[in-house]
Every structure is written in structure tokens, then in C-alpha cells.
Computed example of a mutant assay.
Amino acid sequence: MSATYVLALIPLPDATLDALRRAYALHYLPDGWPETWPAGVDLTRVRAVVTNGSTGLSEARMAALPALEIVSAFGAGYENVDVAAAARRGIVVTHAPGANAATVADHAIGLLLALARGYAPLTEAVRGGNWRTSRGERATLTGARLGIVGMGRIGRLIAARARGFDMTLGYHTRGPHADAPGRYYSRLTELAAASDFLVIACNGGPATKHLVDREVLYALGPHGYVVNVSRGSVLDTRALLDALAERAIAGAGLDVIEHEPEVPFELLDHPDVLVTPHIAGRSPASLIAQRDALIASLTQHFTHTPVEFAVRTV
């Protein structure tokens, strides 16, 4: 029986690579679609692509893979996979919904605590010998107002954790959810104005590009903090830099950056900005869940059984 060729265009954990190599002929290009293809890669034989929401797969690249049958996003996001083009070509698109949601929610709460309590600048103050002069009051989460942008799996898990701090909850989505915790705000600026902390946990993609803009940040106010654990494109970087420079907000916690991995030096130099390298969803448990979802999707497709985690098109 001929080998089934899989093309992986993103960095993958060793355990996931091992699982793919046991079952398939794997072409592993962790730096993405190359300008020049390595010897031995026959694009006409590739039947599956492994990508993620950030890297995605365009229609033009699908067209370069005439045998392509399935595109699997490693993780929940698939915003840069051209799902409509895939549907037209009869290509299945899959993802791993909820696989890393709990880890992302934990990371968001960690950023909130670290920003409010000033863990990073206070550690630097102590290192600099400024113990006595750095013991001013800091904000805390208990009883504070939390606004959540997006109320999917991650947003709901953030809300559940926030309840442990007796936080007042508000949220913004395209429409209200009857079973969602907290008060619904149809206008994001109104949610920001009613929040001490604003957490971005919505989907990425064109529909949410720069959803959190200058108006939203300035509505958050000089004592407010913004945290982004969704996609860098949702938060307008220029507006954020201006708001920080003008002290229109108190600080920011960013796991994603609009043009990552390039990070503006102004963010790195700001004492009340925390930046982590897009790892909110990475934990041993989440990576195992993502691996299992990926392998299950490929197995189901190639054995002609219903694909549980297929993206449904309208």
C-alpha cells in the first residue's frame, strides 16, 4: 500500500511528530511554506496539511497541492485557513476545539494577577535595592470589574476563574447569550468603560481585526489593564502604544502580538507591560489533547468515517 503524505507547516511537539511519522510519510517544514522546496518533497502526493490558525492555508496554496484532501489546524484556531475555498475543493478542514481552553484561561488570570500586583516591576525594584521605596499599594482582583471580549469556551473558563475573586463580570460578543455569566454589553466601548480589566478572548480573523482600538482603550481608562490571549490582530498595536505612552491605560498583558514574533521595543521597555511568547495554550495536557485531536481527525478521514472535529461550513 502506498504511503500517505502529510505536510506539516508549523512547529510541532516531538510526541506529535512521532505519532505522525508512525502512521504517515511526513514532510516537516516548521518554518512554513518555503520559497524553494527541499529535495524529495512531491507536492502532487500531499494528501494532508497540518497548520494552525496563525499560519493557515490559502486557496492558492491549496491549488498547489492537487491531491490535498484534509487540512488540520493544530489547536482551536483556524482563522487563516480559507475554509470557503476548501469547501469548494472538497477539502475537509479540522481543528481541536477546547483542547487548550483551560490552559489559556489559566494564563489570562495569571497575567491579570501579575499586572495588578506588579510582580515584574516589583521584582526589578528589589533587585535594584529599592525594597523600602517600592512598597506602595497595588490593585488586586478581588471585587474588581472584569470585561471579557468573547464568550466562547475560553471566555467562559476565564469567567469561572474570576468568580473565585468575586469579580463583577461583563462581556461583549456579537449578541447576548442567555446562559452566559455577567452583563452583556452590545458596545465594546461601554464594556471597557465599565471594566477595571479587559481580557480579549475572541476569535481572530478579518471580522475582529483591530476590534480593540483607540476608542476602546481610552474608554478603559488610566487605571485599567488590557490582556490579550486571543490573536494579535484583535488589538490595534499602534493604539496600544499611544495609550501606554499617554498613560491612558495602566498596563497590558500580551501573549500575542500583531506582528509576532517582532515586538515593539516600547512594549518591552514599559514597566507595566508583560509579554509572553504566544504560549498561553501550551501545557503538557493541552498539547496531548491537540495531538490526539489531530491524529483522530486524520485517522477518521483516511478510514472514511465521520470526522468529529471537522469545521462546519454554512
Rank of each mutant, 00 (worst) to 15 (best):
P176T: 01
Y225V: 01
I249Y: 08
A248R: 13
I148S: 00
G205R: 08
R117M: 06
L220C: 05
D31C: 09
A248F: 01
D236Y: 01
E260K: 02
E260N: 06
T55R: 15
P284R: 01
A67K: 09
R156V: 10
V50T: 12
R138I: 05
A67Y: 13
G175S: 15
A76V: 15
I148M: 10
D106S: 06
E258I: 05
T94D: 02
D255G: 11
Q300K: 05
L29M: 12
A84R: 06
T36D: 13
R247F: 09
D196M: 05
L115Y: 05
A67H: 12
T189N: 11
G53T: 04
S286I: 03
V6P: 00
G147W: 01
L26D: 08
G253S: 10
L198H: 06
G204S: 03
D269I: 00
A180K: 01
E79R: 05
W37Y: 08
D292Q: 13
T168L: 06
A280S: 15
R282M: 13
V226F: 03
T133R: 12
A192R: 10
S186P: 03
A25F: 13
E124N: 09
G98D: 11
Y185N: 08
G118Q: 08
A280N: 07
F265W: 07
R156L: 12
P261R: 01
G150I: 00
L7A: 02
D42I: 02
V226D: 06
F197A: 05
Y5R: 14
A63T: 12
T16Y: 03
D18L: 14
L29Q: 12
L112R: 13
G118R: 08
V71I: 13
F302W: 07
P181I: 03
V275D: 01
A239Y: 07
V149W: 03
L240I: 00
V6M: 08
T123D: 15
D82G: 10
T173C: 12
V314C: 13
Q290W: 10
T313I: 09
S2M: 13
S58I: 08
V229G: 11
S72N: 12
S283T: 09
D14Q: 15
L274W: 01
T305Y: 09
P206I: 05
P271V: 00
A86D: 14
S54M: 14
G224V: 03
A86V: 11
L7I: 06
D14A: 14
N100F: 06
M1S: 15
